[in-house]
Nucleic acid binder design. Structure first.
Length: 279
DNA sequence: ATGGGTACCTGTCTGC
DNA sequence: TGCAGACAGGTACCCA
C-alpha cells in the first residue's frame, strides 16, 4: 500500500499527538518481516520524542525517563504492502491482522498488516544496528535540495534497466513506489521502458520536477486509498481520483484520448500512454 | 556491479 | 456456488 505520500500522511497524522507520549505497554502479535530485536518490556516507560521519515520508513525516536529526555534509541517502522497505523483511545481487542500495539499515554498506536510485509525494528540509533542496515543505501529524499537533474542523471547513468525500474529501486531517489512511478513518468512525458542511461539531463530535470509535484500533490490529498489505506485517524486519501494512468488500462488518456496501456516490468504493472510518453 | 528472479504472506477479484 | 489463478501499494536476498 504505502509509498512516500502514504507514509508521510501517516506521520503527519501522528506526530503532534504522540510527541511526548509515554509508552505504557507493548503487545507483539504474529511475526512481521523482521524481528523486533529487543525485549518488548524494555520500551515501557520511554517517551516518544519525535517521529521522522526516511523514504518509506518511519523512525520513532525514544527518550528514557532519566536523565529526562535522555536518548532511548528508537523504533524503525515499515508499512510493507498492506500495513497501516491507527491511533485510538481505549484498548480495543486486537483483530487477526493487528500485529503490533504500542500502548501510550495518548492512546493505542496499532499496526494492522494483513500480509505482514511490514516490520517494527528496535535500534539504538537510526544509523546503527538493524535500522542502520535497512536505511543504508537509500537514495536522496525527493524534497531534499540535493535531488536535482544532475543527481538523477548521475544515478541513472550506466544503468541498463528501464527508467521505471530504476525509479522503483530507491537507491537514486526514495519514496517512489509502483503507483507514483507510473504517474511521475506520465507527467514527465517519458516512456517507462526507456533505458535509464538514455534519459537526457533535460528530461532528468523534468522527471525530478514530476516526482516532486506528484508526491507533494499526493501528500496534500491524503495519499492514495486504492483498497484500504487510512491515516492514523482513519481518513482515506483521494489521490487515486487524480491518477492519470495508474489502474486505468484501456481507458482514454486524459490528454490524447488514446487508451492507456498496461505492461509488466520486473513483475510489477506499469501504466502509461504510448502517445504522450516517448523514449 | 548489475540485473533478473524468488521469496515473504494473505486478501480480493475474475473467469471458467 | 466452487475453485484455480491472477494480482495487490515493498524490498531483501540469491544467483548468473
Amino acid at each position: 500500500m504505502p509509498e512516500l505520500p502514504e507514509v508521510e500522511v501517516t506521520r503527519l497524522s501522528l506526530v503532534e499527538r504522540l510527541r511526548g507520549a509515554e509508552i505504557t505497554g507493548v503487545r507483539v502479535g504474529k511475526p512481521l518481516r523482521w524481528p523486533l530485536g529487543c525485549e518488548p518490556g524494555m520500551l515501557t516507560g520511554r517517551r516518544i520524542i519525535d517521529i521522522t521519515r526516511r523514504g518509506k520508513y518511519l523512525w520513532f525516536a525514544l527518550g528514557v525517563p532519566s536523565p529526562p529526555g535522555g536518548d532511548g534509541g528508537g523504533l524503525l517502522l515499515h508499512l510493507g504492502m498492506s500495513g497501516s497505523l491507527s491511533l485510538t483511545p481505549g484498548t480495543p481487542a486486537p483483530g487477526p491482522w493487528d500485529h503490533f500495539d504500542l500502548h501510550t499515554s495518548r492512546g493505542l498506536l496499532r499496526l494492522t498488516d494483513p500480509r505482514r510485509f511490514g516490520a517494527v525494528v528496535w535500534s539504538d540509533a537510526p544509523h546503527e544496528g538493524a535500522a542502520g542496515r535497512l536505511l543504508a543505501g537509500l537514495g536522496v529524499e525527493p524534497f531534499d535540495p540535493g535531488f536535482t537533474a544532475a543527481h538523477l542523471k548521475a544515478g541513472l547513468s550506466g544503468r541498463r534497466v528501464a527508467v521505471k525500474q530504476a525509479l522503483l529501486a530507491g537507491d537514486v531517489v526514495v519514496g517512489v513506489g509502483n503507483i507514483y512511478a507510473s504517474e511521475t513518468l506520465f507527467l514527465a512525458g517519458i516512456d517507462p521502458r526507456t533505458r535509464s542511461e538514455r534519459v537526457s539531463l533535460a528530461r532528468c530535470g523534468r522527471l525530478a520536477d514530476a516526482v516532486r509535484r506528484v508526491l507533494a500533490r499526493a501528500v496534500a490529498l491524503g495519499g492514495s486509498t486504492l483498497r484500504d489505506f487510512r491515516d492514523a485517524h482513519g481518513a482515506g486519501g483521494a489521490f487515486q481520483l487524480e491518477a492519470r494512468v495508474y489502474g486505468r488500462e484501456g481507458l482514454p488518456c486524459q490528454v490524447c484520448e488514446q487508451p492507456v496501456r498496461r505492461i509488466v516490468q520486473g513483475q510489477r504493472s506499469t501504466f502509461f500512454c504510448a502517445t504522450c510518453q516517448r523514449r
